[in-house]
Design a protein around this nucleic acid. Sequence first.
DNA 1: TCTGGCACTCGGAAGCGAAGAGTGCCAGGC
DNA 2: GCCTGGCACTCTTCGCTTCCGAGTGCCAGA
Lengths: 338, 338
Amino acid sequence: MLSERRLQVLRAIVQDYVGTEEPVGSKALTERHNLGVSPATVRNDMAALEDEGFIAQPHTSAGRIPTDKGYRLFVDKLAGVKPMSAPERRAIQNFLDGAVDLDDVVARTVRLLAQLTRQVAVVQYPSLTRSTVRHVELLSLAPARVMLVLITDTGRVEQRMVDCPVPFGEASLADLRARLNSRVAGRRFSDVPLLVEDLPEAFDLEDRGPVSTVLSTLLETLVEENEERLMIGGTANLTRFGHDFPLTIRPVLEALEEQVVLLKLLGEAGDSGMTVRIGHENAYEGLNSTSVVSVGYGSGGEAVAKLGVVGPTRMDYPGTMGAVRAVARYVGQILAES
Amino acid sequence: MLSERRLQVLRAIVQDYVGTEEPVGSKALTERHNLGVSPATVRNDMAALEDEGFIAQPHTSAGRIPTDKGYRLFVDKLAGVKPMSAPERRAIQNFLDGAVDLDDVVARTVRLLAQLTRQVAVVQYPSLTRSTVRHVELLSLAPARVMLVLITDTGRVEQRMVDCPVPFGEASLADLRARLNSRVAGRRFSDVPLLVEDLPEAFDLEDRGPVSTVLSTLLETLVEENEERLMIGGTANLTRFGHDFPLTIRPVLEALEEQVVLLKLLGEAGDSGMTVRIGHENAYEGLNSTSVVSVGYGSGGEAVAKLGVVGPTRMDYPGTMGAVRAVARYVGQILAES
DNA sequence: TCTGGCACTCGGAAGCGAAGAGTGCCAGGC
DNA sequence: GCCTGGCACTCTTCGCTTCCGAGTGCCAGA
């Protein structure tokens, strides 16, 4: 177990390194933080911290920088979450309040997060399966062609074209619409499959074909993982990443382009509470020198999707976590209101 | 006027520079292209080209690189559009054919363009005002709350929430829906305002309020410029930009994040045919060292939106133009089919 | 008008040395 | 037993000089 002072030393190293972006030495540490001991003592502590793998030296005659393990300890034990100031909170609320629809909410959230944290922001659209159905609409566009529109309580809208094997009468369609809505409106999407299972039986034999086609499309829409959309922003912040550019930034940009990777990234994060993945803790290789701070957000108490930021492992964790948490909270409120 | 050979020299310089990314000297030129003259002669030609402002020297003892003006001449007079090969065309078609909805078409187009050109791809969603109405749907979500859903012939769907001042009866809503569709279905969005102008008069006095509210929301949706959405991709290709990284890449990333800037960029491009904007020809300062190749695409003969790529001025113009043109053509076909 | 030759310029790479930051270790003090 | 000041040592960084070569411009001759 590390002594109290050694933890203080580690905290000081992390803070200084995050601030200056340069390896920090024993002398500078004692000058900037009054630890009450001499540089020589700090040196001993540093040697111990290095033995334990919390810090490392880039090269022999340089200061120390925290390792992923060091950041992990810092986040878990040494630093809290820095709350947003009142003006900041007001600004967040004002900015988000101006949104006109779900797309706008998400877009604004991305911008906001990117600006607050000066990092890359990632916001997932409220997921279908965890939302509840507000309304299902069926539009007859052509005799054998129906458009299916799903509206969620979070304001998200999904539409899908359905080509029926045989024409579908307007009356039957209205019937289906009515029955469908009376069964599923207000229910969770994940419950829908069970709720509509026996629906075709209520129809005449001739209509069962089209009804089944529509229903199976509906179910498809629900399970389709790739409908998990997300939006990213603030990539220009990547340029503040480090000095060794192309090598660092490239894989990150590539990862950000792969929505699958990002969704997995957010998906892996714990379901409740804030998750911080540091450096190599990220499964995806390209993000090994980045940290991901993410948290769920939702209209009620329950999370319907996640949002977060991607930044260098050398980031201001307390501040970033504070911003992410605050933004998630307000987005949840906005969604609940709409 | 420049002699034929001098134009050849310019063409050779552009080609070599694009290939090697290094200033090209007179000796290398004569070796790689059989111009039939000696380096000394080429040197004279180069001096002339430099006088005219088509090429420049980064520093005294280096080779020449093309200026924006040089690229302009190259694009206008010296190079054609390189057609895609048959296998490439097939690949494009196959890739786009798999799309399930409009979002998917746009997403796939972006990926495709980025991969083909190895540059940043920008694809604008089919614009509302230039499309025609397929269907307008009104859903009653609550007594005084209506959801307006617009469906275009290109498959695009827009929805908007409408809060009515007073409750709106189900029957009246159905009436409005029917009248609205019979008037506007199949018509161009730009004609809609005129077509619905006198619609409120057909209703009872008590319903005119809600009807007007719904209609004005409809019109709002149509004119709202910021509803011009677009998608970008391939930003990882920016890392192949140049050696002087942060400085070059930063403003470009910033520009790409500003949808307004990009829309303006595409908007400025000529309405028909391919447009190439080279370096300083771009109004936006951050893109002064990039070129933008864009072209309109559409389901019929007419362009409903634009797509293009953003890359370094030092790009393979014939190849890029060929790819952009081919992709635009196939996207148009896909939209027409759906 | 083109060509070969030649002197000149200048940027980039390589080599060298001094400076400085930071460390590890040790002996002595509290 | 822990902390401290001192000291020798290690490396990186920076500036300086030198050298090399690519590329040019110009000129005289074919």
